[in-house]
Amino acid sequence: MIDHNRSKTSHRHYWKRWKEDGDLDARKQLIEHYLPLVDFVSSRMAVGLPKNVTKDELASSGAMGLIDAIEKFDYERGLQFETYASWRIRGSIIDGLRQGDWVPRSVRDKAKKMEDAYTALEQRNLRSATDEEVSDYLNISVKEFQQMLQEVAVTTLCSLEDPIREEESETRLSLLVDDKAINPESTVHDTYLKEALALGIERLTPKERTVVSLFYYEDLSLSEIAEVMSLSPSRISQLHSKAILRLRAALSKQKDQLLQK
Rank of each mutant, 00 (worst) to 15 (best):
D179E: 14
L176M: 15
S159R: 14
R98L: 05
L126M: 13
D56L: 12
T83D: 11
D116E: 15
E144Y: 01
F73I: 12
V47N: 11
S186P: 06
F145M: 14
R127H: 03
I225L: 10
Y217Q: 15
K112V: 10
K207H: 11
R44S: 11
S186Y: 06
G65T: 07
Q254I: 13
K261P: 00
I244T: 10
Q254A: 15
I182W: 08
V228C: 10
W15Q: 00
L30K: 05
D23P: 02
T54V: 02
D39E: 15
Y84A: 12
I236Q: 06
P184V: 03
P206V: 09
L199R: 13
D178I: 11
D219N: 14
Y14T: 02
Q257T: 12
K194A: 08
E161H: 15
A111H: 09
E57N: 00
P184R: 00
E151Q: 12
I89E: 03
P206S: 09
L138I: 06
L193D: 08
T54C: 07
L24M: 10
D178A: 13
E167A: 15
R246C: 05
S92W: 04
R98T: 13
M229G: 06
N125L: 12
T156W: 01
S186Q: 15
K242F: 01
D190I: 03
A26W: 00
S106N: 01
Y137I: 01
E166L: 07
I67E: 12
T155W: 04
S241L: 04
R6W: 11
K51L: 13
L245M: 08
R27V: 03
Q29C: 01
Q123V: 09
R172N: 10
S7C: 14
N183E: 12
R246W: 06
D3W: 10
Q29L: 04
Y118K: 04
S186F: 08
A249L: 02
I93K: 10
L37W: 02
V212M: 15
A85I: 12
L204A: 08
L258W: 05
L197P: 00
S223C: 00
S86I: 05
F215E: 09
K242S: 15
L258R: 15
L160Q: 06
E167G: 11
I182P: 03
G48I: 14
V177L: 15
M114F: 02
A243S: 14
N5L: 15
A250F: 07
H4A: 12
V211S: 03
L231R: 13
